[in-house]
Write a protein that binds this DNA or RNA. Structure first.
Length: 652
DNA sequence: GCAAGGTC
C-alpha cells in the first residue's frame, strides 16, 4: 500500500482539507495522540505551527559559562518542539511514498513544511500545495496543480530565526549580566520588543518635555427658535489681544451670519475585523490585548467565531444568511433590525489577505460574562459591516460680531443604521438651527476662556498595537504577546502605558551602543534581506554573516560602556525598588525577594531594623511618594488591568 | 533563565 501524506499547519485546516478532498468521506483517527484524517490512501495531519525550534546547544545554557558576545559565533541547533507530533510523523512515514506540504501559504508556512521534511525518510516524493483560502474551489485547484517546495523562501525564514536568536540571546545576557539581574529578574532585549519599548519611552519623553502653551477662546452662547447653541472664535495666543476683542464684542446683542452650510453625509460602517482592529476595540472595552486574544482563541476553539489571527479586512463569499439565522436564536430583535437595514454588499477594508477571512461569528453561542463581551463585540462588528450607512446631518456656520469671526458646528445622526447595532463608536451630537446669510442671531452670553495646549497621549494597548502594525513590528499573532512580555519584565506599567525606570534605562543603554536594535528599521532591513534570499539574490550565509558583523561592532561599543550601563540600570532598579522611608528607623524601605522568590518590603537597616511589609505577589507594585496615616507607605498595585492603592501595612 | 514566529 502506498500512502500519500498531507501536512497542514493546524488541525482545523487538516480536517477541512480532508473534508474537501474526500467529499466528506473521511475517517478520523489518532496516532501518538495526534488527530489525523484518512481517505482513499491519503492521510491528512495537522501540526501545531512550528515543530522545530532554533536554540543554542545545551552546554551554552548556563549564562556565566560563556561571554555573551561569544554567543554570536556559536552555531545554534534545531530542537524538536513537539515530540508527540514528531513521533506521529515518523510512525506514519513508514508507509508513505508521497508527501504534500499544505501549510499556510507564507514564509513561515514554507519553513514549517521544510521542518517536517527533515523528520521524514529521504526517498519520498515531495510536493507543495499552495492555496490562499480553504474553500473547495481553491483546495481542489491547488491539489490538481501541485508545485515544489520553495527552499529559498524557507531559508529566508531561517535567517530571521537565526538573527533573532543571536541578537536576542547575546544582548539579553549582556544587559542582564552587567546589571546583575539574573534568574527570574533578567532583562530582555529583542528585535521587536525593544523598539516597542522605545516607542513608549519616547512618548514619555515627549510628555515630560512638553511645555503647554496658553491660548484664549471666546465662546458665545446663541439662541434661535428656542435652540441654544455655541459658536467660538479661533484660538488666540496673545492674552492682550484676546481681552481686547472680548471687550469689543461682549456687549453686542447679535451676530450676523456670514456663511451657512448644511449637508447630509453617508457614513459607512466600520470595515470587517482584522486582528489589529479587533484588539483596538477590545482595548476600548477594557480588555488587555493578551486577554482579548485569549478569549477570542477560546471562542474559536469552541466553534463560535472564525480564526482570530488575520490581517484580512475583506470578506470572501460567506453564508451571511445562514449566519444570521443562527444568531437569531440568541439575539432575535437585533437580527430583525439588521434584516431591515441590510446593505447590498458588505463593506470592505483596505487590507486584503487570502489565508483567513476577517474575524466573524460562525455560530450562535451562549458563553460566560468575559467571553460574552468579546463574542458580542465580534458579532456586532459583523452585523455592522452588513448594515446600511448611517446618515449624518452636518451644519457649519460662520458668524461675525464687529468684524470678528466665530464658528459653530452641529452634527445630528438622522438615521443610525449600523450605529444602532455597533454602539461602541460614540458620536457627539449637537444641534444648531438652520440659518440664512446676513441673518441676525441673538447672543445670550459671552465668555472668554483660557486653556492650554495638551501633551501627547500615552499609548493604550490598543493604540500601541495599531502603531506596531504601522511600523511593521511583530505579526498579527505575536504583537499582543510582545506587549505582555514588556509588562512581565516590569519594563512598562499601567493602562495608559508608561515605562518603568528600568525600561527607560535599558532603552537608553542600548541606544548608545546598539541603536539599531531600538528601532523598527532593523525589522524593515531584515524584511528586505529576507526578500532577497527568497528571490535568490543573496544567500542565507551572506545575510547572517552581515548581521553578525553589525552585532560584533555593537558589542565593541557596549563592552566599552559596560560600567556606565551597569550603573545606570542599577540606579533605575534602585529607584524602582524604593518604597519610601521606614517609619520605625528612618532607613530606606526596599523591595526584596525572599529565598523562595516571594517579594516583600524590608528596611535598608536590616538586621538592626527588622521592619518588613508583605507585598501582593501578582501584578505590578510601585511607590508614588504617599504615606498612610499609620506611617507606612501607600503602594500602587496594577493587576489584570485594574489599578488601586493600599496601605502596605494593611492598617485598615 | 535568552528572541520571534507558528499554534493549543
Amino acid at each position: 500500500m502506498s500512502l500519500t501524506l498531507i501536512i497542514c499547519e493546524k488541525n482545523i485546516a487538516a480536517r477541512r482539507i480532508a473534508y474537501i478532498l474526500s467529499d466528506g468521506n473521511y475517517k478520523r483517527g489518532r496516532i501518538a495522540g495526534i488527530p489525523y484524517y484518512s481517505f482513499n490512501n491519503h492521510i491528512v495531519i495537522g501540526l501545531k505551527g512550528h515543530i522545530m525550534k532554533l536554540d543554542y546547544p545545551e552546554e551554552y545554557s548556563k549564562w556565566n559559562d560563556i561571554a555573551p558576545k561569544n554567543l554570536i559565533d556559536v552555531k545554534p541547533v534545531k530542537k524538536i518542539l513537539s515530540p508527540s507530533i514528531a513521533r506521529a510523523l515518523k510512525e506514519i512515514a513508514k508507509d508513505v511514498k508521497k508527501v504534500i506540504i499544505a501549510t499556510d501559504y507564507d514564509r513561515e508556512g514554507e519553513l514549517i513544511g521544510v521542518e517536517v521534511l527533515e523528520l521524514l525518510p529521504k526517498n519520498v516524493e515531495i510536493k507543495r500545495a499552495r492555496f490562499s483560502a480553504i474553500t473547495p474551489y481553491e483546495i481542489k485547484k491547488a491539489f490538481e496543480n501541485l508545485g515544489s517546495v520553495d527552499y529559498n523562501l524557507s531559508k529566508s525564514a531561517e535567517a530571521r530565526q537565526y538573527i533573532d536568536l543571536i541578537w536576542g540571546a547575546s544582548l539579553t545576557r549582556f544587559i542582564s549580566i552587567s546589571s546583575n539581574q539574573l534568574g527570574k529578574d533578567f532583562l530582555s532585549v529583542g528585535r521587536v520588543q525593544t523598539p516597542t519599548l522605545a516607542l513608549i519611552v519616547e512618548k514619555e519623553k515627549e510628555i515630560k518635555n512638553f511645555i503647554p502653551k496658553p491660548y484664549w477662546i471666546i465662546k458665545l452662547s446663541m439662541q434661535k427658535n428656542g435652540i441654544i447653541f455655541e459658536i467660538k472664535s479661533d484660538k488666540i495666543e496673545d492674552e492682550k489681544e484676546a481681552k481686547k476683542i472680548y471687550e469689543k464684542i461682549k456687549k453686542e446683542g447679535y451676530a450676523i451670519v456670514k456663511k451657512f452650510q448644511k449637508k447630509t453625509i453617508k457614513e459607512r460602517p466600520p470595515y470587517p475585523f482584522d486582528t489589529t482592529t479587533f484588539l483596538k476595540d477590545a482595548s476600548y472595552l477594557g480588555f488587555s490585548a493578551s486577554n482579548a486574544m485569549k478569549m477570542a482563541e477560546e471562542l474559536y476553539m469552541n466553534g463560535c467565531i472564525s480564526y482570530p489571527r488575520t490581517d484580512n479586512t475583506v470578506y470572501p463569499p460567506l453564508p451571511f444568511d445562514s449566519i444570521l439565522k443562527k444568531l437569531e436564536k440568541i439575539m432575535p430583535s437585533d437580527i430583525e433590525e439588521v434584516r431591515k437595514m441590510r446593505r447590498s454588499k458588505p463593506v470592505r477594508g483596505k487590507k486584503i489577505a487570502h489565508d483567513h477571512p476577517p474575524i466573524h461569528p460562525v455560530d450562535a453561542c451562549k458563553v460566560d460574562e468575559d467571553h460574552r463581551k468579546i463574542y458580542e463585540l465580534i458579532v456586532r462588528r459583523f452585523l455592522a459591516t452588513i448594515s446600511k450607512d448611517a446618515v449624518i446631518e452636518e451644519k457649519n456656520v460662520e458668524m461675525a460680531v464687529k468684524n470678528h469671526l466665530f464658528k459653530g458646528k452641529g452634527t445630528i445622526i438622522v438615521e443610525k443604521n449600523w450605529r444602532k447595532i455597533y454602539p461602541y463608536y460614540k458620536m457627539k451630537e449637537s444641534n444648531i438651527p438652520d440659518m440664512e446669510e446676513n441673518e441676525k442671531v441673538k447672543i445670550v452670553t459671552s465668555k472668554l476662556k483660557k486653556d492650554e495646549t495638551k501633551p501627547p497621549k500615552r499609548y493604550t494597548q490598543g493604540s500601541l498595537i495599531v502603531e506596531m502594525e504601522k511600523l511593521g513590528l511583530g505579526t498579527k499573532s505575536t504583537r499582543h504577546e510582545i506587549i505582555g512580555k514588556l509588562y512581565r519584565r516590569n519594563y512598562i506599567r499601567g493602562k495608559r502605558i508608561s515605562p518603568s525606570p528600568a525600561g527607560v534605562a535599558v532603552t537608553e543603554a542600548l541606544k548608545k551602543g546598539a541603536e539599531i536594535i531600538t528601532k523598527p528599521d532593523m525589522t524593515a532591513a531584515l524584511e528586505k534581506e529576507m526578500g532577497e534570499i527568497a528571490e535568490g539574490k543573496k544567500t542565507f550565509e551572506e545575510v547572517v554573516e552581515e548581521s553578525k558583523k553589525i552585532l560584533r561592532d555593537a558589542f565593541k561599543i557596549l563592552e566599552g560602556r559596560k560600567e556606565i550601563i551597569a550603573k545606570e540600570i542599577k540606579e533605575a532598579l534602585n529607584k524602582q525598588n524604593y518604597f519610601g522611608k521606614c517609619p520605625n528607623c528612618g532607613g530606606n524601605l526596599i523591595m526584596r525577594k525572599s529565598k523562595y522568590g516571594k517579594r516583600f518590603i524590608g528596611c535598608s537597616n536590616y538586621p538592626d531594623c527588622k521592619t518588613t511589609y508583605p507585598l501582593p505577589q501578582k501584578g505590578a507594585v510601585f511607590f508614588e511618594g504617599e504615606y498612610c496615616e499609620c506611617g507606612a507607605p501607600i503602594i500602587t498595585v496594577i493587576y489584570k488591568g485594574k489599578k488601586w492603592k493600599k496601605c502596605v501595612a494593611n492598617c485598615n
